[in-house]
Write a protein that binds this DNA or RNA. Sequence first.
RNA 1: GGGGCCGUCGCCUAGCGGUCUAGGGCGCCAGCCUUUCAAGCUGGAGGUCACGGGUUCGAAUCCCGUCGGCCCUACCA
Length: 434
Amino acid sequence: MRCGAALSSVFPALRAPHRASTHPFECIGSLHLFLVTDVRVRFAPSPTGELHIGSVRTTLYNFLFARQNKGTLILRIEDTDQERLVPGAIDSVYDGLHWLGIRWEEGPREGGPFAPYVQSERLPLYREHAEALVAMDAAYPCFCTKERLAQMREEQQARKEITRYDRVCRRIAPAEARQRVDDGEPHTIRLKVPETGTIAYHDLVHDDVKWELKDVEDSILLKSDGFPTYHLAVVVDDHVMRISHVFRGDDWLPSLPKHLLIYQAFKWQVPEHAHFPNVLGPDHKKLSKRHGATAVREFRDQGYIPEAIVNFLALIGWAPGTEEEVFTMEQLIQKWRLDQVQKAGGVWDKERLDWFNRVHIRMLDDDDMAERLAAFLPAGASRDVISSSVPLIKERSRPWPTRVRCSSSFSSTSSSTRRSCCWRSASPRRYASC
RNA sequence: GGGGCCGUCGCCUAGCGGUCUAGGGCGCCAGCCUUUCAAGCUGGAGGUCACGGGUUCGAAUCCCGUCGGCCCUACCA
């Protein structure tokens, strides 16, 4: 049931702490009405580098779900770690996703009723919620320094104990803590996890999952620099932005109990959650740079077409249950189903991607293909050469740049010669033999 | 170390108690087509369903245990 939310949370602008017009996320004057049944999903990259192909898969599933439910897709930038920011990362998200044909309705550049969509621009919101949690006794200020924490961890390790925050600040009397905070003593705010009990949840992919609260750490919610950690920021934003379904990688599953505790403390309706399996490298570890190309841009530069990447990616972690597997984006929107999503991680298989690339290139019409090919040719290359080579290249399509170099050497010799030019690799010697 | 999750051919997967002598695709192998070919077409090899116990007339499918892998265990997301 999603209708338990108080009016104030349906209209965030009406909530008391936000009534003052000093806050950038105010939306008074443009009240939007949201039905509790509206599907609102979001993808929330942190701008720490180039758009990763693995996070594209999660985003794709979000997109497909939004489209088939006539819902809204939201882009939110989670830049709460100031130290890991990489300039240009947001451009990479926009470029990569647009190239792949993924569109969204609300985001930093699109705007929307819950702007801003960049977490570093919503800091007062998180601070207020962290303080509210303290007031409710669901969180507490922690005055431990990073140094003490590091030392504590070291000692725990030496004693072969579980490395976990020892909760010393949890035992400080509230009045004293209040005083120290008021005196300006640097501090963080930690989640106050109940010492006993269990917490359970029904995940849309993993079904029932549960944890013993004694195993859950008092994680930091608000850092001493005033920025929230992921745990606080996701919950607050997902709630405030009226997110109906949280879809993310299943590496987040272990921290779900913390998020649940926050929802509980605020008495907020918990959105549906689905934790998707990760895309893995050949060694079955999470796909990363050491496995080779992972940035969308690299695939584009290598001559893969977006149709192929989308099709290939969709099929890691999902299968339609029939024997067909070549799909366009439109068909995926029709056929993809959340309840068919796999639990186990899937390995990135380049050979299979190459096959999908060939298949989708053959499906392109000639004009379209000539158009796309042009991007890979040196400036001033003859349009006629491109057009005449299209049918031949299509027949033997491999990722593009290699073949393009060959095709630019086309002469009007016999058709068999032209043919061989198409498939030969661009190594100088072979090339010369064309 | 602690917790969580996962486990069908090398890889992506179908399969939800009998129709499974486990199906499809990638890759691999062979034949065909081609002057040649990594393209195309046709065919083939490849899985005792992680392992061990149950439950059942019957289990890849349900239950328990074991093992293995991965993820989390940061004032990173």
